[in-house]
Amino acid sequence: MAALPVVVAPIAGACVMKPHDALDRSALVLGVVSIASALFVFASGELEVVRVQVAGVVVALVLGLLAIAAGWLESRTLIFAAGLGFLVAAGVQLGLLARGSGGFLGGNASTFSLWLGLGFGLIAIGMVPRPEPAEEIALEDQNASVIAPSTDG
């Protein structure tokens, strides 16, 4: 099943799927999750699964956009930076909670947990080594040659 896009893509003239597409897509999805979490600013009571208020909304939107851009641009550095940003935000939120309130971020421990997950997730993705461009081209050629039908008589 993994080979199917490699067969179809050259015929369709589309791009061949690269080995780390799933990782970049995952970073993009995590960015979308962060942006979606900002919607909880409108939630209250039992619907407030995670508290995102005040500057926390800005954090969710900015770092979410960074993660989306990082996944779109297939940049391991940006993915790592977005993850680090979420972990810093989580740490700041926890520090504010230790002082007695959500502070300027306006969150609670659920906010800390969400950003903790996003942070570790993006960092785990960013830590995956990427092949050098020459290696990636060789791998794509190898995939294409494995799938291409034999023309021997």
Binding site: E48, V49, V50, R51, L97, A98, G100, A109, S110, F112
Partner: peptide, 13 residues
């Protein structure tokens, strides 16, 4: 999300 939401009533310090 169950664990996440139930952090809301555990209020430090």
């Amino acid at each position: 999300l169950l664990w996440l939401q139930n952090l809301g009533w555990k209020i430090p310090p």
